[in-house]
Design a protein around this nucleic acid. Structure first.
Lengths: 261, 261
DNA sequence: CGCCTTGTTGACTACCCTCAATGATCGTGG
DNA sequence: CCACGATCATTGAGGGTAGTCAACAAGGCG
């Protein structure tokens, strides 16, 4: 049937329909291309969200699955006094799944960083299609896990890295996602529409401190930035600053204090 | 067939198989009971993990889905110099889904806070069962989203709340989960095996500062704590401190600065 | 009883925040 | 084309929250 195109090529030994590691690129594969294909098939509505506008989605989040088709968005949490935490960035191919919330949870919204387009897929339609194509559910699960692991990275940046480490690590992560979703220009520049306030709100800093931190990275020749773009000049150096170590996949002994218990 | 017991009772209008809101309890429903039932049916192995030990799982995380059956565990990220961030707590009914990692990601491990038991379900078995029972995939997706939203709460605590707010909010969240998973005693006490270092590592503070902060809450009569237990004495007050506001579910106007763009 | 883990408290430090002013950049309209 | 306003970036001075270091107390457990 026509929908076969969205079915991941899996075999029993492949974890949850994940694509095999690419031998060429070091960026992690995302499920974005697959989600976009799904949205093309199942969306009943497309919605445009202007720069700075909010996707009035959370009241209907139990009715639709959202897939970002174009532009940059972010999910943020807002405290009563205006403090704000960006929970995740959403690039084309990322999805938004609502959830019945408990009373302890902070209110969220989805905002557009650039003009953006979102596909709306009715939840009941997703459920129906899954009945005949269970692999769709596995794709959604994998995408959900991607978001979870991205959130974990933000948590480490925010909780346990210094501002310099956190900013460097954040830039590496987002640059990779942007490259993966949108691509780099020939000279290695990626689209990067975030302002310093966005960066600060994503990793728990103020815009002022982000500014000072970025300056260090710029004057050290590690990155170049302008309005709307980013170029990572010295990947080795920024990885070092960010505390990224080539991981072989094998557990190494950490010479660390152990949490006793 | 026998496996029907794990199928959530869903109808098309119900979001992803979530149980309807309970009219009695204000705690959010989890999918724990359902996952435990699934594990009872599908697990090929149970593994005991002693207090303080590490679930040597991440090398095999592409082969198994893990479900915590008993005890408390936590997922943590470790930096090279020993800094540590607790990413999530795992109580009975919580699941662990591995993921092929990208090179920017920090190394993780799963450790036991108390003696714990984990059920191992082979991934290929999950895939097979999903073919004939797609609702299983929806349960897994819902559980994954639960973990994601829990992570978002930690992110807000860590990035945008003061130590007092963060500790209070953390205690409220975990107390609710513990009550939901294990239950409260008649006098309102819940099992709480975390030491102050765990709390600090979960919300980006040092154990010393957690100590000072907990002391404020104790002397204010908001909570009572002892080795292995916690009692929230004044729920109204701690919710106020934590910045939790009864949410009607309707969007209210936030009198806040807007992120310009 | 004695060791080891965990909790507590104090003094000092430092990283990041706040407040504020200025500069750069961009879009817009006269 | 330039002026203007708005947004965003930059820089400085000073302050506060949380970290660090250290010593000691309080419980558990063998």
């Amino acid at each position: 049937m026509a929908l076969q195109i969205v079915a991941p090529q899996t075999h029993p030994d492949t974890y949850f329909g994940a694509v095999p590691p690419s031998p060429v690129f070091s960026e992690p594969q995302t499920h974005g291309h697959r989600l976009i294909a799904i949205a093309d098939r199942l969306a009943t509505e497309y919605r445009n969200v202007a720069v700075g506008a909010e996707l009035a989605a959370f009241l209907e989040s139990e009715k639709f699955l959202f897939v970002v088709m174009d532009g940059w968005m972010f999910r943020n949490a807002i405290l009563e006094d205006g403090r704000r935490q960006i929970l995740d960035l959403m690039l084309p191919g990322d999805m938004i799944v609502g959830r019945r919330s408990g009373y302890t949870e902070v209110s969220q919204s989805i905002d557009a960083i650039t003009d953006a387009t979102v596909a709306l897929i009715p939840i009941h339609l997703v459920s129906e299609v899954i009945q005949e194509m269970p692999s769709l559910a596995l794709t959604l699960l994998a995408a959900s896990q991607d978001a979870l692991y991205a959130s974990y990275e933000s948590l480490v940046d925010t909780g346990r890295r210094t501002s310099l480490e956190a900013v460097a690590h954040f830039l590496v992560r987002i640059e990779a996602r942007a490259a993966n979703s949108i691509g780099r220009t020939a000279n290695g520049t990626v689209s990067f529409p975030l302002i310093q306030e966005h960066i600060g709100d994503a990793i728990g800093l103020t815009a002022v401190h982000v500014c000072r931190t970025l300056r260090k990275l710029k004057t050290a020749g590690v990155i170049e930035m302008g309005r709307g773009w980013l170029k990572i000049v010295d990947r080795g150096r920024i990885a070092e600053i960010a505390g990224i170590w080539e991981d072989t996949g094998f557990e190494t002994e950490h010479p660390v204090r152990r949490l006793a218990s």
